[in-house]
Design a protein around this nucleic acid. Structure first.
Lengths: 205, 205
DNA sequence: TGCTTAACCGAACCGAACTCAGATTGGTAG
DNA sequence: CTACCAATCTGAGTTCGGTTCGGTTAAGCA
C-alpha cells in the first residue's frame, strides 16, 4: 500500500523543519520517549501531515542517521586529504570528528544510540532502503578509518597490526564520546578532541 | 496503583525462566522488536502472568542490565585483586571483561544497547528505583577503572594524564566489542581480548 | 479561470503494553 | 483430612500512540 511520500523538496516543504524538530526531540528526550505527534506539534502541523514527508517515525530516525553519516564522511574526506603524514591524517580525522555544532552533537548521539537498528531488516520497503543506505555509510566510515590505518602501517609510521581491529579501537574511542557528551557540559570539545587524538596516536604507535 | 510484584523467589517461581527467555529474545531480536507476550509464550505462561514478576517490559530490561553490571563488577574485583603491578591489573581487568559465556554476551549487548535508558527518569516508582540502581552500578564500574588507572599513574607504571578521561578511553575500547560481536562469529573472544589488552596498555603508556 | 499536485487534516483503526477482577494451586497450620 | 493463605496465574477488557483512510485546501501555472 505504498504511501505517497514527497521525495523532492517543494518550496513550501516542511521536511527540514520536521527533521530539525525531530533531532531536537530524539536527541534530548530519546527516540522512544518522544511522541511522534509532539514533533508535529512543534512544527505546527497535524500528526498526519508528517506522513507526507516520512513513511514512519522510524523512517525519520533512519533519515537523520544517514544524514549525519554522510556529513561525517564528507568531513573525514576533506580533513584527511592533503596531509603530510599518516599521523597528520589521524590527527585531522579526529579533529574533523569533533568539528560539530550543537545540532550535530545531537545527531551523533542519536546515531550512536540506535546503531543496532541497522542490524535487523525492516518490513516497509522504503524504511529498508534507508536502512541499507545507512548500513553502507557505516561500512564506508569503517573502511575509511581502516585504510587510513593501513596507509600508516605501510609507510612505517604506525606499528604493523591487524588494521581492522586497530581501526575499530580508534573508532570506538572517537565515537564513545557521543554517549555521554552534552553541549554546554563541563568538558570542552577541544579538550576531548586533544585527548582522543593523543590516545589514538598511542594506539597505533 | 503499585501492583504486587513478587520480590523474593518462591519455589515455583518462574522469574529465572522469564529472565532467560527475555535475555535471548532481547539479545537476538532486540528489545523493541520482541513482543513482551512472546516472552510469556516462550516460558509457557499467559501474558498477564509476567506482571507478577516484573512491573513492565522495561522493568525486566532494567533488571537484566543491573544483573549484568553486578556480575561485571564482581568479576572485575576478583580479577584485579592480588595482582603484582598495575599493568597486570589492567590485563586482568580486560581478561575478566571477556570471561563470558553466550548468555553474558547477550546481556552485555543488551546492556550496551540501552545504556541511554539510564539517563532519563522513569514514571513508575519501581522502574525508577531499578534505574537508579543500574546507574549506581555503572558509576561503580567507571570508578573502578578510574582508580585502577590512578594506581598505575601513582606508581609510575602509567603515564600521568587525566585519569577519568583515560579510563573512559579504556572502557570505550573494552565495551565497544559488544556492539558487533556475536557468539560463534568469525573472530574469537581470545583474539579480541588480547588485542584490546595490548591496545589498552599502549593507551596508558 | 480552471487544473494539477504538494500539503494538509479529522476521524477512525490497530497492535501491543498494560489493568482488572477474579480463579487456581500448593504448602501448611490446626 | 480440611481449611486457609499466599503465590501464581488467567481471560476479558482498556489505553495509548503510531498509522491509515478518505478526503479538503491552497499554491503555482497554463
Amino acid at each position: 500500500m505504498a504511501r505517497q511520500v514527497t521525495t523532492t523538496e517543494g518550496p513550501r516543504s516542511k521536511r527540514g523543519l520536521i527533521l530539525s524538530a525531530a533531532i531536537e526531540s530524539f536527541g534530548d528526550d530519546g527516540f522512544e520517549l518522544t511522541k511522534w505527534a509532539s514533533v508535529a506539534d512543534k512544527v505546527g502541523i497535524g500528526q498526519t501531515a508528517l506522513y507526507h514527508y516520512f513513511e514512519s517515525k522510524v523512517h525519520c530516525l533512519l533519515t537523520i542517521m544517514s544524514t549525519e553519516l554522510e556529513r561525517s564522511i564528507a568531513l573525514f574526506e576533506e580533513a584527511v586529504a592533503d596531509q603530510e603524514s599518516p599521523a597528520d591524517e589521524l590527527r585531522a580525522a579526529v579533529r574533523a570528528a569533533y568539528d560539530v555544532g550543537p545540532r550535530e552533537v545531537l545527531q551523533m548521539h542519536i546515531l550512536q544510540s540506535h546503531m543496532d537498528l541497522l542490524a535487523t531488516p525492516r518490513q516497509s520497503e522504503r524504511e529498508e532502503a534507508e536502512r541499507q543506505h545507512a548500513r553502507e555509510l557505516v561500512r564506508g566510515v569503517e573502511e575509511r578509518w581502516t585504510s587510513l590505518v593501513e596507509r600508516g602501517m605501510a609507510s612505517g609510521d604506525f606499528a604493523r597490526r591487524d588494521p581492522v581491529q586497530t581501526s575499530r579501537m580508534l573508532l570506538a574511542m572517537v565515537v564513545s564520546v557521543w554517549r555521554w557528551y552534552r553541549h554546554g557540559g563541563p568538558t570542552s570539545l577541544e579538550d576531548i578532541r586533544d585527548f582522543v587524538s593523543a590516545s589514538a596516536l598511542r594506539v597505533v604507535a
